[in-house]
Design a protein around this nucleic acid. Structure first.
Lengths: 403, 403
DNA sequence: ACTAATTTGTTTATTGCCATGACGAATAGA
DNA sequence: TCTATTCGTCATGGCAATAAACAAATTAGT
């Protein structure tokens, strides 16, 4: 995922701590505590985070006023004493809009502060054969419609993020290269209706990983998320944050060498994982010809039917994955390896060989096979992640909304 | 480096921001600004970090009082206006004590706040053939002597860290396994004189990486540091912090697969890097027999003499390194790869093949050969890092000294 | 040489935020 | 009904930074 970070690591002089910063941080602390631990009374929040009830009251007042929290009825605790009043994330407050462009579809989704999807659209669209401008125009309409629907639900969109299946420029404003769309050097903001604010761009695989982090079930704050998009990409989440690498090229799992003398790869090297487990390689080995509208579905169909070359190709891909992931496990030691994107649906046929290989190769340390699992979100991950990016930002820093 | 973190990631509810915390953070901000940018006046610090001069004055007063900063004479700026008074890190303030146990030596060093080594001892000692208790007793004496010397220089030791060439237990109080020392399940604190405070333990390779981060010349806050100690270890520094992985097993470069069907490794897998570039493998391929006191020196001697099998073995090791590092580069995308420890001295013979291999294999992204470089610190790295760990902690949170 | 301009460091008043402790409110149990 | 307990709020105080004014020390200009 060669996507450089738009804001380089601010390693130099940090910003000073001020009283406003302190307020800001405590607002975030209260909000994220409620987000993490369901409905909670002021006193419960205070006890949990270490602030006084008075301080929490003041912070909660501000969050209520901003429409980020709602106060429910008194909740009977069963114990003696005055019952507290339940505080929960507002389901009609700020929301995030996620957008997605695929080769054959457009997607839009709106999530509320709780992370619940409230609007969901996925419409077929033959984007490869149309100019980018037209595609983006249609996407903007879908975005506008979704925004209207959100408004009708009482939600206000605080930010929009477009999941891009390709490589972004260092400033995150250009799609350098998205072969599946036929885009090269496209700047979406230029083709966006002037009346609407253009969405922020982020790599699809990265968003899938973040969705997995935030709503993937098993909590794991250090994970590797694998997806097929432009080649094979692994997005790395480290300590709960997306890790892009020093130059933005971290997670190039597709070009990890599997067999040093293997077939030559399009990148120029030999024996890259992509030559064994990449979409093109698997399709060819499975004997799938021509261009299917949904090549993955074609593979799944054949695998279900027990088509021998397909099963063999998937097993071979799984083995190669296992070898490449051995490197990833030995180097990064993630708490979870998630098979996302198209690989989610192929997991039943990929996982056995991957698990066998990993179990045989990862020996210097205890290896739990459950570390490797298919995504719970599957293809919905990137779109969901795009929408969640905004709401997560609000939760980690609510003050951004009013100053 | 299977060393679990003693303090797990505090992902849950963080601590609230208080006014004391604000003070604490700003003290650290001022101190680290002075540390990073040489002598600076109060006004210069204020301008740089964004605090008012008044606030900086108050913070500086506290740091002067604590003996962390010294005020120099007025420094003529050449420009109009009253000249500022230079503030610099105190060279007679808090200091860090680093300790080291190797198979054939003991080491101790003291660094001042500026990171300058002020006391340095490296004494030969045949530690493999002696019981751990005796070794640690001698080390404690060396530590006490070093502390006395530091005291004579006006330094006060604020913490001691022991660099261990092996695997630590999860609580970082036990040496689970240090084959080069013949230690298994040793708890150094139990053998330490009761009168002295036992040192904290940290893995030698990790400390080498930190030393490289803090005093390695080219600044790079995301780096891979390779060293040979127990097998081949890569310590990962990510965003300026040591990355241990979810379970503490990150950086097991030695067991990254190089040839899937290669020779069986001691770990049970096949074709691990260690089978090509590990100390034992290289020594055998070079035809070095018996147990040298310093096997690396033996290799360097033969390589200098042009001994063909040695040169071939080193080239082969370099190639294998190149392949394994291709995985590391593609996955982690570090700003620097540093050849540390014993490999520093072998760098002249390893680097060419490594560079060739990396240049040929890393193709999906721009690859700068200068990313790979030998350590400037070499074998001194771990000991220096052990001492620096304490002073760096003081600089990043000076308030720890008085509350 | 003297004044003006400029920059530094300190002093004083003000603001903002949280802690402390007291109080009314609301519930369970006796 | 009374008491114990817990919840949320209010008034007060302390602390740390900001803002603004002042004194000190230097350069530049005439």
């Amino acid at each position: 995922m060669p996507t450089a970070s738009p804001a380089a690591t601010p390693e130099g002089p940090r910003r000073p701590a001020s009283q406003q910063g302190m307020r800001r941080q405590n607002l975030a602390l209260v909000l994220s505590t409620v987000a993490a631990s369901g409905p909670l009374s002021r006193a419960a929040v205070a006890g949990r985070v270490g602030l006084t009830r008075a301080a929490v009251s003041s912070l909660v007042d501000e969050l209520l006023g901003a429409g980020l929290l709602v106060e429910g009825e008194t909740q009977a605790s069963g114990k003696a004493g005055r019952p507290g009043r339940a505080l929960a994330l507002h389901d009609r407050g700020p929301a995030g809009l996620g957008l997605e462009v695929g080769p054959a579809h457009l997607g839009a989704c709106v999530v509320d502060l709780r992370g619940e999807p409230r609007v969901w659209h996925r419409v077929p669209a033959l984007n490869r054969s149309r100019p980018a401008e037209q595609v983006l125009g249609e996407l903007a309409e879908l975005a506008a419609a979704s925004t209207r629907e959100a408004l009708a639900l009482g939600l206000r969109i605080e930010g929009a993020v477009l999941a891009v299946p390709g490589v972004l420029g260092p400033a995150h404003d250009t799609v350098e290269h998205a072969p599946n769309l036929g885009w090269h050097g496209v700047v979406p903001a230029e083709h966006w209706p002037a009346a609407l604010r253009a969405p922020e761009l982020e790599n699809e695989a990265n968003l899938g990983a973040l969705a997995e982090l935030w709503r993937g079930g098993e909590p794991a704050d250090t994970l590797v998320h694998i997806s097929a998009e432009t080649g094979i990409g692994a997005a790395l989440v480290i300590d709960g944050r997306l890790f892009r690498g020093a130059a933005g090229y971290a997670g190039e799992l597709g070009h990890v060498p599997v067999h040093t003398d293997g077939p030559r790869c399009s990148c120029g090297a030999r024996g890259c994982l992509e030559q064994y487990a990449g979409a093109r390689a698997v399709l060819r080995a499975a004997g799938v010809r021509g261009t299917h509208r949904d090549p993955v579905a074609a593979l799944v169909d054949r695998a279900r039917e027990g088509h021998a070359p397909t099963l063999a190709a998937l097993t071979r891909a799984g083995e190669a994955f296992g070898t490449a992931l051995t490197s990833a496990v030995n180097l990064v030691d993630p708490a979870a390896i998630v098979l996302g994107g198209a690989y989610t649906e192929l997991a039943p046929w990929l996982l056995p060989a991957m698990t066998t290989e990993l179990t045989a190769r990862v020996r210097v340390r205890p290896w739990d096979p459950d570390t490797l699992r298919p995504s719970r979100l599957g293809r919905r991950g990137p779109l969901l992640g795009a929408a969640l990016l905004t709401t997560q930002r609000v939760i980690t820093d609510p003050a951004r909304l009013w100053d």
